[in-house]
Design a protein around this nucleic acid. Structure first.
Lengths: 303, 303
DNA sequence: TGAGCATGATAGATAATGCCTATGAACTTG
DNA sequence: CAAGTTCATAGGCATTATCTATCATGCTCA
């Protein structure tokens, strides 16, 4: 009586529910069935997987370790089914797409609309989060692809380049810098600059670009969207760097903010699709890249 | 009829043998059994896994992809059993140990002898190769631990520091440099130096240390062991850098070579144990590190 | 303290699944 | 074209998972 994938699912459910009856219901089997199978695993492996002492069912240390491996195995199995589905029709199945907050509002709506038109059989899921957590989700398999502005560090990940997005400086209407001809990085002073909080890759890139002596002395503003920052600038609270697409159409709008370009060769970020090298959806992702590039505004230059 | 771990093993055997009958024999089942189960997988997944056309059985593209995932799943299952065994007795089971050529001859024999004494229930396997392939084997799960002189790049790997091993310069008996008081890095000239070929981390570290303007102009010698290099130096063919342990007892031996220390703060390498963060054998590895340190010659300083 | 309830373990019957032997079909080869 | 390989199919058998019913344990609260 060797171990079985079903048993691993039972173990996973039991760990989540901490309750034999509920776990069994989730697995659509009776409680004795689940109890017997767990017991069988314990005999087979020669270790105790769950502590039945007291009211709550808890996994033992070994149980925890084995559960982690069980999840790996089950993830591989899920990938097998997903691979098969993708092979039957590369443009069908599930695709979980992630994106960072400084990209999603300006790119995702159109991209999703276009994708639905181009890939009608595809079930598209979406998740917004910061780069670090999106990378984790990619590696874990929760996500199939993410739109990011940084190169992946993990060797299991790969990219398709999409486009370069220039950085723009935004200033209040009445700001003295509006008089200067060419706007330089040195003109952006540390105590005027409003940036997104830690964790956002755009903040790191802006700080990198400006090469502040004491970046830790930056005025902290706890905002979570570029839109809020634009409002703050419009209200005369400071100046900011923003990715060009966050401007929407406001290139020289009659708003309360002025938009200026920055005189620096590295004042841009490279946007790309990041995904697992081992993904079976490579063909779909190539097409997705095309679709995204098609939905770009004129100002962005594909690279 | 959901997929089964046994089915995955059948698929693996079939891919290896490219023959239903032989694959079945390896799996200890009859040929029809294997045929039926493969067929069932194909129906379940809705894709063709093997091409039966002609004399040879070949996996389809999808089959190849799915096989790779199947191997991942099976590896996780193996790890589950290994984890259970390790939990029953941390000092039992299998341990696959790897090491690079510039370490193994001087460390492994004693280390293995001591380990066998300290962990009598442990089945110890050994593999010598260059760093790159050992790292791959670690990630793939073929290897449990490797003794390396470089920090791992992959985030899934972790280290236990063992000791610092100084570099020594070896010179022929009659070499002019034997007259100089303090031996400096600059004294080692590019056209005299004999190093191991590309791929050996010790070569890279030696080149790094010397900071040659044109490292590509190095005189190439296709030797595969430090011992050969020592012989070449003894024969007056050049000079070399070697890790101290490669000297054995020959610190100031009556050989044909002179051993000198190098006047440079970075003239050493950090030796450590590298292993998967997720290993269940952490406790054993900590003990193994102690055993290895105990078996070191006096000159090495544990760090 | 003891009845009642919740929870997991056990037992025996039943259904599903995988396996084997025997045999058939297709293709290769001499 | 006949013989030999090789894989697929069929039908019976054995194993295994599952179910319902029931028991054992321990907690809760009057």
């Amino acid at each position: 009586m060797p171990m079985n994938l079903r048993d691993l699912r039972y173990l996973q459910a039991l760990a989540e529910e901490q309750h034999f009856g509920r776990a069994a219901r989730i697995c659509n089997v009776s409680q004795p069935t689940l109890s017997v199978q767990i017991k069988k695993m314990e005999v087979d492996l020669g270790v105790e997987l769950v502590e039945r002492s007291g009211r709550t069912v808890i996994l033992t240390d070994v149980g925890q370790n084995i559960l982690a491996l069980a999840k790996d195995a089950l993830a591989s199995i899920d990938h097998i089914y997903s691979t098969a589905e993708t092979a039957r029709d590369p443009y069908s199945g599930q695709l979980q797409l992630g994106s960072i907050p400084t990209i999603s509002p300006y790119l995702i709506p159109q991209a999703i609309r276009q994708s639905k038109a181009m890939f009608p059989r595809l079930k598209l899921g979406f998740l917004e989060d910061i780069t670090e957590r999106l990378n984790e989700a990619l590696l874990q398999g929760t996500l199939d692809v993410a739109i990011l502005a940084t190169e992946p560090e993990d060797p299991r990940l790969e990219v398709i380049n999409l486009y370069r997005e220039p950085f723009s400086v935004i200033l209040p209407k009445e700001h003295p810098l509006n008089e200067t001809e060419d706007l330089d990085v040195e003109d952006l002073t540390l105590n005027e600059l409003i940036l997104l909080p830690e964790g956002h890759c755009f903040r790191d890139q802006a700080v990198d670009l400006c090469q502040f002596a004491q970046p830790s002395a930056l005025h902290e503003v706890n905002v979570s969207s570029m839109e809020t920052i634009i409002s703050l600038v419009a209200a005369g609270q400071g100046i900011s760097l923003i990715p060009s697409m966050a401007l929407g159409g406001r290139w020289n709008a009659g708003d309360d903010v002025c938009v200026r370009t920055l005189n620096h060769p590295n004042a841009y970020r490279q946007i790309n699709l990041t995904f697992r090298k081992s993904t079976p959806k490579r063909q779909l992702l190539d097409s997705l890249a095309d679709v995204i590039l098609d939905s770009l505004p004129e100002e962005m230059c594909a690279v």
